[in-house]
């Protein structure tokens, strides 16, 4: 069985304490949340942090709540909590649909929203959802908090705006009354990373799409998003032709790579097919179907 390299460990008692520990232990210290990305990487010795700063006791980072017209998901909210959240189910079923397909129930008991976002795997499902919903993340450092749009959060695969000495604390999403949302994913097997996924929301008002968001993962979409497709669709009727054209524009903006999950042409096709399927369901939901 593969085992991690030696590491130090400190358990944070508050976010401020965690920030202080990060400062104290230097740039090779890493915070650990659920550990379901980091510990396997440590075991495979792809990651060798010098110190782990454990955030699991930080109640202030847990929970899912509504604040004004935003939904706030604490960075330490577990995937299982997101899956079961009545708040998210009410406003954005896309979360439930995506979470049901993330890893497996036992992993979801441990894995966290913040951990997944910060791991920034190019196939991460929640990144697509977050990007579709045009959410923001809150990042704290000793000098204070800053808010970053999710569409600016990722620099590239496994790279985010969270700098040394910083911790992601929250993810926030605007509530959009009347929005329908949906998630479509193809995976080789239950629990696998997606071959491709599309998450969308659509608000249909007076017979036209007044707002929409399209998020894509695993298909080389910049910032997990498809802004040209959104632009195309906004202001148009949610007809099959318009949805299909939007899906095509979304797929055209993707640049997937071939790997064992599938060849690039297939992934590009899926980007289109899954975007279309998600748009159909989301726009139907928005129209009360």
């Amino acid at each position: 069985m593969q085992t991690p390299a030696p590491v130090d460990y400190a358990r944070a008692t508050s976010v401020d304490h965690a920030l202080q520990l990060l400062d104290q232990h230097g740039e090779d210290a890493r915070v650990i949340a659920g550990g379901h990305s980091l510990i396997p990487m440590m075991r495979l010795r792809i990651a060798s942090p010098t110190t782990l700063i454990d955030l699991n006791d930080l109640d202030e980072l847990k929970g899912i709540r509504v604040e004004g017209n935003e939904i706030v998901i604490g960075a330490m909210a577990r995937h299982a909590e997101v899956l079961d959240s009545p708040i998210l189910a009410e406003h954005y079923p896309v979360f439930r649909e995506a979470e049901k397909l993330i890893a497996d129930p036992v992993v979801r008991n441990r894995g966290t929203v913040g951990g997944s976002m910060c791991q920034a795997d190019p196939s991460e499902d929640l990144s697509a959802v977050g990007s579709a919903l045009r959410g923001t993340v809150v990042i704290r450092s000793k000098s204070g908090s800053r808010t970053v749009p999710i569409r600016e959060f990722h620099f590239g695969p496994y790279m985010t705006q969270v700098a040394d000495g910083e911790i992601l604390t929250e993810v926030r999403f605007p509530i959009r009354p009347g929005a329908g949302s949906a998630y479509e994913k193809v995976e080789r097997r239950v629990g696998d990373w997606p071959v491709a996924s599309a998450g969308v929301f659509v608000v249909v008002k007076d017979g036209v799409v007044s707002d929409c968001g399209i998020g894509l993962t695993a298909v080389g979409a910049e910032h997990f998003s498809a802004p040209e497709a959104e632009e195309f669709l906004i202001g148009k009727a949610p007809t099959e032709d318009n949805l299909a054209e939007a899906a095509k524009i979304a797929a055209d903006s993707c640049n997937p790579i071939s790997d064992q999950r599938g060849p690039a042409d297939y992934k590009k096709h899926l980007a289109q097919e899954l975007t279309l399927r998600a748009l159909r369901r989301a726009s139907a939901a928005s129209q009360g179907a």
Binding site: Y9, D54, R110
Partner: peptide
Amino acid sequence: EEPVKSCTMLAVMAD
């Protein structure tokens, strides 16, 4: 109260 994969948790985290 919940099942977890004990290969993906450090003993110190269970303290």
